[in-house]
Write a protein that binds this DNA or RNA. Structure first.
Lengths: 223, 223
DNA sequence: AAGTTACTAAACCGAACTGTCCAGTATTGT
DNA sequence: ACAATACTGGACAGTTCGGTTTAGTAACTT
């Protein structure tokens, strides 16, 4: 029942790490669903199946617990391998479509929306926290996709002067208006058809703007 | 000191409309800067220079006051004439740049950011409110810009299959990653140079994707 | 003048919340 | 065994907040 693996064995009973974990889990669920001010420490304790004093013993106060929860949420929120669509052999449009579908699904997942919402809601709380979120989420995704673009450029598939900027363009386009509507709360579920249409339109636009010209004879598709 | 212009003259002292206005003004400032839960009714009363009971007499409870404040904020948030750059005679790139600058300035204004933040923070409060915000803000802007695009298409300047979608693309691109960073709170001020570069990059990309081909001899600018 | 309503200032109520404290019990190292 | 620490459960202090009440004054209509 106890999972203490401490090297430094202090005198007395060690803290129960499982309890700590369950507190953190409870905090994440509650903070994400009810916001910072909307969740009380009593509620966290109850949800974690732990006494309130234990919560305070593991995390000094509410702010500390909140920061720890967000931090934990951000850390395990990474796609990491989304852009590893082996480019070699895959035509650029197909690769982009695959990436687009993955990214679109990721940022529109209830989890991501809830996290995003909470970051916006508590934007005044701590710039450190905001930077942490940005670094763990958007920034890394952006960097990965920029790397992908550079490879495509090297492979002669795309022609882009500023890959970083273009990467931002693409990801922002994918999120689209619907993402904002979701955040604000007036975005009903998107139909599969509409989602596919949006993704296709985005990829098409991106390619029209950045693909290399293969002679003047090829008709340029407009949707 | 009293501005009652009621047609139906009820018996007794009429409500002071100036007080009502100042209450609403105070509510807007406080709700926007400190959020819903962060502002107390006492604070609103104090800021408005009015007794708390007067607040409750004009607006029944906190929720009603909040809704009224948001509603008022949304109503007078309209650009309206942003897209009236007389297109006739203006080359399309120049027109788009003008629109882009105006829109970018609008959505990055502290006012708009604060309103947007609050809408996200209280997304659970009321779908009605969210729809109201969307209809008064983004939706109208989008419609105006779509109208502009259709004119440009009719004038033979652009070639777009789905103007509504393209309009969304353009506006979303303009907001860019920086807008999200601002919302979350880790977006420092953007330098004028960077802002202009972003806008130029956006307009260029949009034009590469949607302008009509004027023969194959014209070199296509890439940034 | 009389009746009705709006306003102020302040006290007040009940609920909720953060954080602490206490008495007692469980769990570890020495 | 003993000391030290982690837990539980509940009570508690101190605040804050939404909303109401009271008592008195001001403004307006007929």
């Amino acid at each position: 029942m106890n999972a203490s693996i401490d090297i430094k064995s202090l005198p007395g009973r060690p803290k129960d790490l499982e309890k700590r974990a369950s507190i953190l889990e409870a905090a994440k669920t509650l903070f994400l669903s009810r916001g910072f001010e909307g969740t009380s420490m009593d509620a966290v304790a109850a949800e974690a199946g732990v006494s309130k004093l234990t919560v305070y013993s593991h995390f000094g106060d509410k702010d500390t617990l909140f920061i720890a929860a967000v931090q934990s949420k951000c850390e395990r929120q990474l796609p990491e391998a989304m852009f590893d669509v082996s480019l070699r052999g895959t035509p650029i449009r197909k690769a982009l479509l695959a990436i687009a579908h993955a990214f679109h699904g990721l940022v529109h997942s209830p989890e991501a929306i809830a996290l995003h919402r909470m970051m916006v809601a508590n934007s005044g709380q701590s710039t450190h926290l905001a930077e942490l979120f940005y670094a763990a989420g958007p920034k890394r995704t952006l960097a990965s996709f920029e790397r992908f673009l550079r490879e495509a450029i090297a492979a002669g598939e795309l022609e882009i002067k500023e890959p970083a900027r273009a990467a931002g363009h693409f990801l922002v386009l994918l999120k689209g208006l619907h993402h904002m509507r979701q955040l604000v709360g007036c975005g009903g579920e998107m139909s599969d058809k509409e989602r596919d249409a949006h993704i296709k339109s985005t990829v098409d636009m991106f390619l029209r703007a950045y693909r290399v010209e293969r002679g003047q004879y090829l008709a340029r598709t407009r949707d």
